[in-house]
Computed example of a mutant assay.
Amino acid sequence: MLLESNMKATKKKLIRITTVPISLDKLLEGQLKFMTTYFDVTAISGDDKYLKKIALREEVNYFEIEMTRKITPLKDLIAVWKLYWFLKSNKPDILHSHTPKAGIIGMVAARLAGVPVRLHTVAGLPLMEAVGIRRKILDVVERLTYQCASFVYPNSKGLKDIIVKSKYTSEDKLKVILNGSSNGIDTHHFNSEQFDSNEKEKLKVKLGILPDEFVYIFVGRLVKDKGIVELVEAFVNLHMKFHKVKLLLVGPFEQELDPLPESTLDSIQQHPNIITMGYQKEVRPFFAISDILVFPSYREGFPNVVMQAGAMGLPAIVSDINGCNEIVEEGSNGTIIPVKNEKAIKNAMEKMLLDKEYFSNLKQKARSSIVSRYEQKAVWEAILAEYNTHF
């Protein structure tokens, strides 16, 4: 089903497609509405009810195509066929895909349908953790996605380097927009000044956080790839030495896709100083009551969470992976540690707790480092400029 469009017939048609609607919702919030000033915009994803809600908010058309996040050849072919006929009927000028499965389906269908401008944003490479035959399949899919695209936008410099090194496509087909990121950050919205001391105190009391406790926060999916196993182990060991600390975990478990071991789940559920909040649509209050972000992910594209935390005035402990090691500048707005290293996480957490001057200096620069490099409106304008170069 399509929402009625109030766009003028003279506007060119732009399609934005993601595998699941939450990516449109969280990774591109506000950007689709911004583009409606210049294009007749259609959002494509699965889950008709959720997709419709996003389309209404962003004031765009929508079309539902169910896609999976797993290797499902038959379902993927059906999705390609359905998208192909939609594109043949609607004749868009640009199709811009995000997320791996929407990338391959979108780029193949758009090329077959003769869409003139086919753009794909790479915001991460899940295949980096794959091995064996699965890795070989995903490598082929990645190359085919880029082959069918007119242009590919890695959303970090490190991601671009990985793509070139892996020989997925030629370097002249790649471009990082501004300093990276797919959507930038609304630094007015993500601002600790939006929350007064009374609000923060009430939330701390509700969660059982004492006034003199130091709060580490993680925001994201609670899965192995995000470094949760190492983070939980590091915190448990830290707490044995320092009792006035809390670990706040904000995000959903995904046991069906990337399960945590039972031992980690037991620690999360039973440890008195680990607080789990599950998925939260509004994460700002939790940043507002925390002292520092700990984000030991194994792989990322360009993590919004690190930018959000920085805009809220939080320094960050991040793993040395692309995206994270571009947002965080060592010793300026945070610290960078080795990947999959529980000891390094614990040591960094301990240093933040004990070295007050060091922590204070990082905190002082955290927000300004984000505002100066990743303001959302500048990213939107740069993406619009990219679209216009094709006409």
Results as ranks from 00 to 15, higher is better:
345 I>A: 09
304 N>L: 01
25 D>V: 00
374 Y>I: 02
225 D>W: 00
159 L>M: 11
52 K>G: 15
339 V>T: 13
321 I>F: 07
114 G>Q: 03
290 S>K: 04
93 D>T: 12
318 V>S: 06
195 F>C: 02
51 L>F: 12
153 Y>L: 10
131 V>W: 09
286 F>D: 01
217 I>H: 01
92 P>K: 03
85 W>F: 13
209 I>A: 02
228 I>Q: 00
246 K>G: 08
367 R>V: 09
288 A>I: 04
3 L>R: 11
306 V>E: 06
294 V>G: 05
74 L>P: 00
218 F>C: 02
32 L>Y: 14
51 L>I: 14
34 F>A: 10
376 Q>K: 09
318 V>N: 03
209 I>E: 05
352 M>F: 15
223 V>Q: 07
66 E>L: 07
116 P>V: 04
340 K>N: 09
142 E>P: 04
23 S>T: 15
325 N>G: 07
30 G>D: 06
207 L>P: 13
327 I>Q: 12
249 L>G: 04
208 G>R: 03
322 N>E: 14
239 H>L: 01
304 N>C: 00
178 L>F: 01
196 D>H: 07
125 L>P: 03
105 I>F: 01
364 Q>F: 14
309 A>H: 01
86 F>M: 02
301 G>L: 04
390 H>E: 15
91 K>E: 15
271 H>N: 02
56 L>S: 13
42 T>G: 06
61 N>D: 15
227 G>L: 05
113 A>I: 04
273 N>V: 03
24 L>E: 03
147 Q>W: 13
100 P>K: 11
93 D>Q: 09
339 V>H: 05
112 L>N: 01
67 M>A: 13
331 G>Y: 08
384 L>K: 10
38 Y>T: 07
114 G>F: 03
72 T>H: 11
163 I>Y: 06
268 I>A: 00
14 L>F: 11
213 E>W: 06
52 K>N: 15
316 A>N: 06
220 G>K: 02
183 N>D: 12
243 H>Q: 14
269 Q>W: 07
193 E>I: 11
241 K>V: 14
321 I>Q: 09
51 L>C: 12
